[in-house]
Amino acid sequence: MIDFSDIEGVIFDLDGTLVESGLNFRDIRKKLGCPTGVDILTFVEDIEDAVQKDAAAAFIVEQELADAHGARWLSKGKALVEALQAEGVPMAIVTRNSRNATTIKIETNQIPITTVITREDAPAKPDPTALLQIAANWGLHPSRCLYVGDFDYDRIAAERAGMQFLLV
């Protein structure tokens, strides 16, 4: 159980938490030849042939950008952001998305969060680096932060960072 009185900063995942996402990871995996259970970003990073690696990375970005234009606020995410904003609680977004897709989603939906870390800015979740960077920038102990997400990587990253976690 989360004690919200102990929370001084909230970090959100983006897809499936603040905005809807239509990314079909099964199809993306199939197109890339990525086995089930293997992280897609790690799979692409481990491709040795530079041309194949670039093509795979470009395909992922292409899928993200197509998804970004249709992404809309999720009502529960919007309500939580508005409540935190009214209370003056600092907020951030940490996402595995590309910077371009993230920017489109944030701008299109007018999400009032300016601290954003994408996979180009820090190692992708479940690595806790981005979460820890934000807590440090806020001058907060990680245990005073809440990470809100919808996927196992979000939970793992929060645990590794020593943050509280809320699954949505």
Score class of each variant (00 low, 15 high):
residue 116 V to E: 08
residue 116 V to D: 10
residue 116 V to H: 05
residue 116 V to R: 04
residue 117 I to Q: 08
residue 117 I to E: 07
residue 117 I to P: 00
residue 117 I to K: 09
residue 117 I to Y: 14
residue 118 T to M: 07
residue 118 T to S: 15
residue 118 T to D: 13
residue 119 R to G: 12
residue 119 R to D: 13
residue 120 E to D: 15
residue 121 D to Q: 06
residue 121 D to G: 09
residue 122 A to W: 03
residue 123 P to W: 01
residue 123 P to V: 06
residue 123 P to E: 00
residue 123 P to S: 04
residue 124 A to R: 03
residue 125 K to V: 13
residue 125 K to W: 05
residue 125 K to F: 06
residue 125 K to C: 10
residue 125 K to M: 14
residue 125 K to Y: 06
residue 126 P to S: 11
residue 126 P to G: 10
residue 127 D to V: 12
residue 127 D to C: 12
residue 127 D to A: 13
residue 127 D to F: 03
residue 128 P to D: 06
residue 128 P to T: 04
residue 128 P to Q: 05
residue 129 T to V: 14
residue 129 T to H: 09
residue 130 A to P: 03
residue 130 A to C: 11
residue 130 A to G: 13
residue 131 L to R: 02
residue 131 L to V: 10
residue 131 L to E: 03
residue 132 L to E: 10
residue 133 Q to W: 08
residue 133 Q to D: 10
residue 134 I to C: 02
residue 134 I to V: 15
residue 134 I to K: 00
residue 134 I to Y: 02
residue 134 I to H: 01
residue 134 I to S: 02
residue 135 A to E: 11
residue 136 A to E: 15
residue 137 N to I: 04
residue 137 N to G: 15
residue 138 W to G: 09
residue 138 W to A: 09
residue 139 G to Q: 10
residue 139 G to E: 11
residue 139 G to V: 13
residue 139 G to I: 12
residue 139 G to R: 03
residue 140 L to F: 14
residue 140 L to S: 06
residue 141 H to D: 15
residue 141 H to S: 14
residue 141 H to R: 06
residue 141 H to V: 13
residue 142 P to G: 04
residue 143 S to F: 04
residue 143 S to N: 11
residue 143 S to V: 14
residue 144 R to Y: 02
residue 144 R to V: 04
residue 144 R to Q: 15
residue 144 R to C: 08
residue 145 C to D: 00
residue 145 C to K: 02
residue 146 L to C: 10
residue 146 L to K: 05
residue 146 L to M: 12
